[in-house]
Amino acid sequence: KLLSSIEQACDICRLKKLKCSKEKPKCAKCLKNNWECRYSPKTKRSPLTRAHLTEVESRLERLE
């Protein structure tokens, strides 16, 4: 599967780190437990900047 097509777990399953069936409108866990089942939009991760990478590398060197 391509990364862009990976389905996201519902908010509660993601928060509780449960295996989500990803069914809509309610996944199996939410249906069974009568929880409100919501699927928040995916958040875009910002790409690493060179400055951040350099900072992490220098912190790693100090720890070694």
Results as ranks from 00 to 15, higher is better:
residue 49 T to F: 04
residue 7 E to K: 06
residue 23 E to A: 13
residue 27 C to A: 04
residue 64 E to L: 08
residue 27 C to M: 02
residue 62 R to P: 09
residue 60 L to C: 12
residue 34 N to C: 14
residue 18 L to H: 09
residue 54 T to H: 04
residue 25 P to Q: 09
residue 4 S to M: 12
residue 22 K to C: 01
residue 15 L to Q: 09
residue 2 L to P: 14
residue 8 Q to D: 05
residue 40 S to C: 02
residue 31 L to W: 15
residue 41 P to S: 05
residue 38 R to G: 12
residue 39 Y to I: 02
residue 38 R to E: 15
residue 53 L to T: 03
residue 8 Q to C: 04
residue 43 T to I: 14
residue 10 C to V: 02
residue 37 C to T: 02
residue 47 P to W: 07
residue 28 A to N: 10
residue 51 A to L: 10
residue 58 S to Y: 14
residue 33 N to S: 14
residue 5 S to Q: 09
residue 16 K to L: 02
residue 35 W to D: 10
residue 52 H to Y: 14
residue 31 L to S: 12
residue 23 E to W: 06
residue 38 R to K: 10
residue 12 I to N: 07
residue 45 R to D: 01
residue 37 C to K: 00
residue 58 S to F: 14
residue 15 L to W: 12
residue 26 K to W: 15
residue 33 N to K: 09
residue 21 S to G: 05
residue 2 L to T: 12
residue 26 K to G: 15
residue 56 V to A: 01
residue 4 S to E: 13
residue 48 L to Y: 12
residue 3 L to N: 11
residue 21 S to Y: 02
residue 42 K to A: 13
residue 55 E to D: 13
residue 2 L to Q: 14
residue 36 E to W: 04
residue 35 W to N: 11
residue 40 S to H: 00
residue 29 K to R: 10
residue 49 T to Q: 07
residue 39 Y to T: 06
residue 30 C to D: 03
residue 47 P to S: 04
residue 6 I to E: 10
residue 42 K to T: 09
residue 30 C to Y: 06
residue 62 R to E: 03
residue 23 E to R: 08
residue 48 L to C: 05
residue 21 S to C: 04
residue 1 K to W: 03
residue 36 E to Q: 10
residue 58 S to G: 13
residue 32 K to E: 10
residue 25 P to G: 11
residue 23 E to D: 13
residue 63 L to F: 12
residue 9 A to W: 02
residue 7 E to H: 07
residue 23 E to S: 14
residue 31 L to E: 13
residue 9 A to P: 04
residue 32 K to W: 07
residue 54 T to V: 05
residue 27 C to R: 07
residue 8 Q to T: 07
residue 40 S to F: 05
residue 20 C to S: 05
residue 13 C to K: 02
residue 18 L to I: 11
residue 28 A to C: 10
residue 63 L to R: 08
residue 61 E to K: 09
residue 44 K to Y: 08
residue 40 S to Y: 08
residue 10 C to W: 00
residue 52 H to E: 08
residue 1 K to S: 15
residue 57 E to S: 07
residue 29 K to F: 07
residue 45 R to P: 04
residue 34 N to K: 12
residue 22 K to D: 04
residue 63 L to P: 03
residue 39 Y to Q: 07
residue 17 K to E: 00
residue 21 S to P: 04
residue 60 L to F: 06
residue 31 L to Y: 15
residue 37 C to R: 04
residue 2 L to S: 13
residue 11 D to K: 03
residue 33 N to D: 07
residue 34 N to G: 12
residue 21 S to K: 01
residue 56 V to L: 10
residue 48 L to D: 01
